[in-house]
Nucleic acid binder design. Structure first.
Lengths: 145, 145
DNA sequence: CTCTCTGCAAAGCATTTGCACATTG
DNA sequence: CAATGTGCAAATGCTTTGCAGAGAG
């Protein structure tokens, strides 16, 4: 989890302030990963009622901008937010929609080689593996019997 | 481009009919790739006014279901549709939002290894490289001078 | 004649935005 | 005080859906 110092430093470097709402969003993100804006709102409201969804989105966008949170969005599913500094990829279950982080170190080299070959600059890349997780696979097999 | 035989066979295998509208959607997709539903609508209406956006979406969904079109969707951008049977990945320009296909054969093995290690079944995977294309990079550099 | 398809318009969902007021440094 | 942040509600953009009539086998 991100500590307050890192966050504060990040915000201050830009012109942003560390308000109660923003701190609450970070706290909400802290102990869980891959939360939707809606879920984050619920968590934040638990300790600070009256916070609006708009503020959640605005905060998440700032945090993404300064690099403290990463966003995962994939066809039609509401975006999921995660407070982390580590580059990683995702594995998504098509049944239960659970999301798991995976590190795939080999990708960086591959992606950069392809991108620079095509003249692309300021590269980022994201790999998403889509399938049926172990739990859902077992459930599906059992149900079929 | 997909020929009518392939399409018709695909549709007939399921309970779907090859209507004029569906044929028009396929024709619209044929010579261009990565079209949004809105663009497809324009093209279809050029030869068949009165077609509705709902029909476009319904058709695209059927074509995806039977495997004749692939959908690319990425955070906040309208989905792009492409009529192709070949597995591939994408490179997206953050400035002009152009989309380019890339084949990265090495990924299959990597993805399958990771997925099966975690117990995932029925795997698919998608890599998206995000950056600034050659054209936009040049333009940005020129603008900065 | 039955089943599938279509256009239309309305609804849905996630996200963004305008505005007046509150808060911060 | 000047700049930034907030809640609220309305607006947006993309996509889906219900329905009644049209078309296909």
């Amino acid at each position: 989890m991100l500590d307050v110092k890192t966050v504060d430093a990040g915000l201050l470097q830009s012109r942003y302030r560390l308000t109660k709402q923003r701190a609450a969003v970070l706290r909400a993100l802290g102990d869980g990963t891959h939360l939707s804006a809606e879920t984050i709102l619920e968590r934040v409201r638990a300790e600070m009622p009256g916070v609006s969804l708009g503020t959640i989105y605005r905060t998440l966008d700032i945090l993404r901008e300064i690099g403290l949170v990463q966003v995962f969005s994939f066809g039609g599913i509401a975006a999921r937010y995660e407070a982390t500094l580590e580059k990683h990829h995702h594995m998504l279950c098509t049944d239960c929609r659970s999301l798991v982080n995976v590190r795939i170190d080999a990708l960086g080299e591959i992606a950069r080689a392809i991108a620079s070959h095509e003249g692309y600059s300021e590269i980022d890349f994201a790999m998403t593996i889509v399938g049926r997780c172990a739990g859902c696979t077992k459930r599906a097999v059992t149900a079929a019997t």
